[in-house]
Design a binder for these strands. Structure first.
Lengths: 157, 157
DNA sequence: CTTCATGCAAAAGATTTGCAAGTTC
DNA sequence: GAACTTGCAAATCTTTTGCATGAAG
């Protein structure tokens, strides 16, 4: 999906969502949508505020707080909770599902997909009578670079 | 592991941890430890406060906030972050590792273990050069009871 | 008697909310 | 015009901190 196609699809989805619930199409919501789609990776309300300002819009934090959940409900964003406890948003529309590998030393986050794990998750859910709608998997450890660095220190301090 | 054995092991582990770092063995820390081990499942600082009061101890929230991380570092508790964004603690010592199935309707949390998934996680980590130390997996969906309830409503409203 | 811990209250963040004014439908 | 939104500021909630007092080693 190209960037333009994502913007178009998101706009459409938001409009539909708003219409369905009798909510209103405001310029703030459209500006928010535009900015949010331009942020790569994870972000929080404050990053959104910066992005809006950078784009020349003035928006209030309150409006951001009120509307990020709307974008989630519309399926454009998704909330993810890092195991550090931070709550962040990320693009859901046009972004394949992925999970996270996190280096506990340098905080690098690598996104990955692994179909086989998802298949097993369905198996677990079935065993317990659950119907899955979502999941979060976070693998925490040390990346190659940090391991190498540790190794170097041991050999030549 | 019996309940008494867990208490003993936890006490021992805490003492060791404190001694190693030149920290002190205080009655507050022991009371906290006792209460925390008695709480089933997940809990937050306020639940700990209630548990302490119920046990007839008076402790301050500040002390709880200061010492839950100590119990984590000592390997007695572990922090887990539900995808709702709530940060909670749970017993780590004497509790096998498990992951969570969460019903998004009734918030039921089912703990499960599934070795095959963990094996695949190692495979992913290896592919990306990571050495795993931990992971969090949360499967989110609807439990049987909530699905049945929904079904009933459709058939006989 | 030195260092660390506690309790309290104040501070700091993060998120939510009440309300008047402005917009959308 | 009725209902929904926004921005602001005040209110909440959760977590952290400064400081004086008390306890541990």
């Amino acid at each position: 999906m190209t960037k333009a196609a994502i913007h178009r699809a998101a706009r459409q989805r938001l409009d539909l969502y708003l219409r369905e619930r009798g909510l209103r199409r405001t310029s703030e919501r459209e500006e928010l949508l535009d900015c949010v789609l331009g942020i790569p990776g994870h972000f929080g309300p404050d990053e959104v505020l910066s992005a809006l300002k950078r784009a020349g819009y003035r928006a209030s934090l309150a409006t951001i707080y009120r509307n990020l959940p709307v974008l989630c409900a519309a399926g454009i964003l998704r909330r993810t909770c890092l195991s550090s406890g931070e709550m962040r948003y990320e693009r859901a529309l046009g972004a394949e599902h992925h999970d996270h590998l996190i280096c506990e030393q340098c905080s690098t986050v690598v996104e990955f997909q692994y179909e086989a794990i998802e298949v097993l998750q369905e198996a677990v859910a079935e065993r317990y009578g659950f119907e899955l709608t979502n999941h979060h998997l976070e693998l925490i450890g040390r990346c190659r670079a940090c391991r190498d660095a540790a190794e170097d220190r041991r050999v030549a301090p």
